[in-house]
C-alpha cells in the first residue's frame, strides 16, 4: 500500500515537472510568436533595413544568417565527419586518441565567446580577413566542430561490428567499407550533429559580432561583413530601436529553426524507410 502511494507520488511529481517544463517552453515560444508573427509581412521579408532596422525589412540579415550558417556547416561537416571516422575506425588501440578525444569534449563545453575571441585575434586580425563572412564562418565552424565530431562518433559506435565483418569478408577494402556501409548507416546521426551545429551557429551572437561584424547591407562576397538575425535581434533590443521588429525577427528565427529541424527529420525518416 505504502509502496503504491510512494510510486504514485513519484510518477505524479515527475509528470508535474514534465508538464511545467512543457508549459514554460510553450509559453515562451507562444509569447514571442504572439508578439512577433503579426509584424512579419512581405516587406519585412523582402526589403532591406532602413534607419538601423527601425524601418524596412531584414532581407539582407536573413541572407547573411543563411550564408554564414551554411558556410560554417559546409566547412565543419566534412572535417568533423572525417575526424570522427579517424578516431573510431583508424586509431583503435593508439594511446594518443584518449587525450585528443578528451580535448574535443572540453572544446564542446567552452563558452562561445572564447571561440569568438580566438576568431577575432586569428582570422580578423592576424590573417587580415577583417570582419567578414569568411572570418565568422570559420570561427563558427571551429565552434560547432566538437559537437559534430561527438554526434558522428556516437552514431559510428552504434554501427554493428557485423556490418564491418560482412563487408570486409566480401573482399571490400576498409575505405570501401566505410564509405559504402558505415557512413550510410549512420547518416541520421551525422544529420543530428549537423542540426545541433546549425542551432548553435544560428543562435550565436557575441562570437559572430566579433568576427563577422554587424553590417546591415547585403553582402556581395565572402569578405564582406554581415549581420545575422541573432546579432540583429540583440542590437534592436539592446539599443531599443524597435520592439516590433525585435519580436518579428525573433519569431522568424524560431520559424527558421523549426523549418530546418523538420526538414532534417523528414530527410532522416525518408532515408531510414528507404534502407
Amino acid at each position: 500500500m505504502i509502496k503504491k502511494i510512494k510510486q504514485g507520488a513519484f510518477y505524479g511529481s515527475i509528470g508535474l515537472l514534465a508538464f511545467l517544463v512543457m508549459i514554460s517552453l510553450l509559453s515562451i515560444m507562444g509569447y514571442i510568436l504572439f508578439n512577433g508573427v503579426g509584424h512579419i509581412n512581405l516587406e519585412f521579408l523582402t526589403k532591406e533595413p532602413r534607419s538601423m532596422g527601425r524601418e524596412g525589412g531584414i532581407f539582407s540579415v536573413i541572407i547573411g544568417t543563411l550564408i554564414l550558417t551554411l558556410f560554417s556547416v559546409l566547412i565543419a561537416t566534412p572535417i568533423g565527419v572525417a575526424a570522427a571516422i579517424f578516431f573510431t575506425e583508424y586509431s583503435a588501440g593508439k594511446k594518443w586518441v584518449g587525450p585528443i578525444r578528451f580535448f574535443t569534449e572540453i572544446l564542446a563545453g567552452i563558452p562561445s565567446i572564447i571561440f569568438g575571441l580566438f576568431g577575432f585575434a586569428f582570422f580578423v586580425i592576424f590573417l587580415g580577413l577583417g570582419w567578414s563572412i569568411l572570418s565568422g564562418g570559420l570561427t563558427l565552424a571551429i565552434m560547432i566542430l566538437p559537437t559534430l565530431i561527438r554526434a558522428t562518433e556516437e552514431s559510428l559506435k552504434t554501427v554493428p561490428m557485423s556490418y564491418r565483418e560482412g563487408s570486409l569478408s566480401l573482399g571490400a577494402t576498409k575505405l570501401q567499407t566505410i564509405t559504402r556501409v558505415i557512413i550510410p548507416s549512420c547518416l541520421p546521426g551525422i544529420l543530428t550533429g549537423i542540426i545541433l551545429g546549425v542551432g548553435r551557429a544560428i543562435g550565436e551572437t557575441a562570437a559572430v559580432m566579433l568576427t563577422a561584424g554587424s553590417n546591415l547591407r547585403m553582402p556581395t562576397s565572402l569578405l564582406d561583413s554581415t549581420r545575422t538575425m541573432s546579432v540583429h535581434l540583440y542590437t534592436l533590443a539592446s539599443e531599443g530601436i524597435s520592439l516590433e521588429k525585435t519580436f518579428a525577427t525573433a519569431s522568424l528565427l524560431i520559424i527558421i529553426v523549426l523549418i530546418i529541424n523538420t526538414a532534417a527529420n523528414a530527410i532522416t525518416s525518408k532515408y531510414i524507410i528507404k534502407s
Binding site: 560482412g166 563487408s167 566480401l170 573482399g171 571490400a172 577494402t173 559504402r180 550510410p184 534502407s275
Partner: peptide, 24 residues
C-alpha cells in the same frame, strides 16, 4: 567467402546486398 552465425545483411535493399561484392 564467409557466412556468419547471425545473418548480417546490410541495411540496404535485397538487390543492393547481393551486388555489394561485385560492385566493390
Amino acid at each position: 567467402g564467409m557466412v556468419f552465425q547471425k545473418p548480417n545483411p546490410f541495411p540496404k535493399t535485397i538487390f543492393e546486398n547481393i551486388v555489394y561484392g561485385p560492385k566493390v
